[in-house]
Design a protein around this nucleic acid. Structure first.
Lengths: 343, 343
DNA sequence: CTGTTAGCGCTTTCAG
DNA sequence: CTGAAAGCGCTAACAG
């Protein structure tokens, strides 16, 4: 391995000069020396040692992102946004995956602290568990004490910069839009009762219905993934209420629900309408195309990095709106309910 | 920031002892001292500095993975496999994304070299461009010279450990299977002519057909993504050959083709059969379910890490078989061709 | 079993 | 504009 010292010696200059020309210092260096150093470096195949640099500078150019699951397109899109933003800032991204285990989340923060990561970005909604939350906060505090910056994507954790998707508001918009199409009896595949993302969406949807003067929807809790959606839909079908439209609190659950409906010989949207949330990209070619709420996932990742990298200030909350996207999986119902039409 | 020295002083022991108890040395330390050090560390909120550790040890616990696109489920699945394997080895993953730009691929390797990454894993098929290949090889050589380990996922690059998906063989199997269902006239949406993954699959498929005694398929080159598949399919439809089955060299292209076929009022599989390659997870709920070739993507990522971390040996090639998965997007054709049935 | 002491490769005052 | 030298936090001989 060629070191800076090798380069300096080869170029006949001091270590300091070599450092100044090779690794972005603001100090000026004479053209001649500069040229000599550069050619020596090239010749010897010199590569900085970022670990030594980090040690000397007391700060790395690493940003850590911790997400729940890389194979979930929702998180992949967020991570992609982070990666793009990090590239622009010439920063290196290290990726941690929790698989929804809070224990692992904490462990990753500790690791990133050890790595002296300049910032850590945490995506994925928190679960209502005070004990874990306390430990998470503590670990974050240690990291902050060491000069680390933190930004969250999802639920607010008090005292932390956060990119907040407006789940509740967007779900309400969706409900109003669906009501406007003439639907009156809804079911909500509501996901886990302690997962904020899920409960916010379900609650917002309910609010929207009530605001439109419609009755309470049938709420079916369940898992937050494809299979959770399928199982919840099967449960719903078994209980047999008269429903014209099903809202699943995320797209992958909606896909599971779609499968369940089909198993029961129901056509979407002819026999029943279906909506999701997130507008996951690989699902855009689903037939029927899924009515959903679009969240600017990649943008949210970028925002989080910008937040973390900007001057520390009073904890900021950056709200991100979702956009209702009506597609073929929902059909308009005839009838006088048209008066509920919004927009 | 609390340092090891702080801990040592607080515990009243030497730096070396503190190091030995806190950071996995094989050396033994007395129970008393150990306890003292541990409690001091906890009390002071000590966190190792991995950058200092890396510098002192001359080796980090970072593994770099460079993929083409995180939002492509193919790469996300591979990266997920790497992450899981890295977790098991207590290694940290840093992720780089090339967006199919060879220039960025090289830059990432340089960065990972600077990071003193213990290993770098590169996924994504190479393009036939000798100039770029030369530069890539050179950068890899510098990295190896510094003690770095490299493993590839995809095309062999000579002299490097590689996990090799058997694209050609699997595509051949697929062709034979489809021939066995009675199809005789095929089109291949072949992807980019210089992308090895694409050409291998197209060539293998053709071989399979010829082996089954069938005529040459219609070959339509194009992009490797969803839209490439759509455009190629439209082209195919415009040229109007009599075809009963279309093979797209990857699943996302198949999805694009499906859209194109539908635009032309063709039903799949009633009017025309369709097959893809990769068995991308988020597409499993497509209707009709896509006939495809399953590749153990996550496993391939794990394998690559194991390869890179194991004792350096003569460059190893680990072949990975693909498995033909017949689903609803392909229908059997009546007729005497049943004699071609394999399996 | 424990402590001393060189570094690891680079940055950064501080002098010149 | 250039150089000398003191660390950054930790590890790993080498002694005891």
């Amino acid at each position: 391995m060629t070191t800076l010292e090798d380069v300096a010696r080869h170029a006949g200059v001091s270590l300091a000069t070599a450092s100044r020309v090779l690794n972005g210092s603001s100090r000026q260096v004479g053209a001649m020396m500069r040229a000599r150093v550069e050619s020596s470096a090239r010749l010897l195949g010199y590569r900085v040692d970022a670990t030594a640099q980090a040690l000397a500078r007391g700060a790395s150019n690493v940003v850590g992102v911790v997400i729940q699951d890389l194979t979930d397109p929702y998180f992949a899109a967020i991570a992609d946004g982070v990666v793009r933003a990090a590239d622009r800032h010439h920063m290196v991204v290290t990726l941690g995956t929790t698989y929804r285990d809070p224990e692992r989340e904490i462990a990753h923060i500790a690791t990133l602290n050890a790595q002296r990561a300049r910032a850590v970005l945490i995506a994925g909604s928190r679960v209502a568990d005070e004990r874990m939350l306390g430990r998470l906060r503590a670990e974050l505090e240690v990291y902050r004490g060491a000069g680390g910056r933190v930004a969250l994507i999802g639920q607010d954790l008090a005292g932390t910069d956060t990119v907040v998707p407006l789940n509740r508001e967007a779900a309400r918009d969706l409900a109003v839009a669906l009501a406007g199409l003439g639907h009156r009896r809804f079911a909500v595949l509501a996901g886990p009762p302690r997962l904020y993302t899920a409960t916010d969406r379900a609650a917002g949807f309910r609010e929207g219905l009530l605001a439109a003067g419609l009755p309470e929807p049938v709420m079916v809790p369940g898992g937050f993934d494809r299979d959770g959606g399928r199982v919840a839909a099967l449960e719903l079908l078994a209980s047999g209420p008269e429903i014209t439209c099903v809202f699943a609190v995320n797209d992958v659950m909606a896909v599971g629900a779609l499968a369940a409906l089909r198993e029961h010989g129901l056509r979407v949207p002819e026999d029943i309408s279906l909506a999701g949330f997130d507008d996951i990209a690989p699902l855009r070619d689903l037939v029927p195309a899924l009515t959903t709420v679009r969240l600017p996932l990649a943008r949210m990742g970028e925002l989080a990095l910008e937040l973390a990298l900007s001057e520390p200030a009073a904890p900021r909350l950056v709200p991100v709106a979702g956009e209702v996207v009506l597609r073929d999986s929902v059909t308009a119902l005839a009838g006088p309910v048209q008066r509920n039409l919004t927009s």
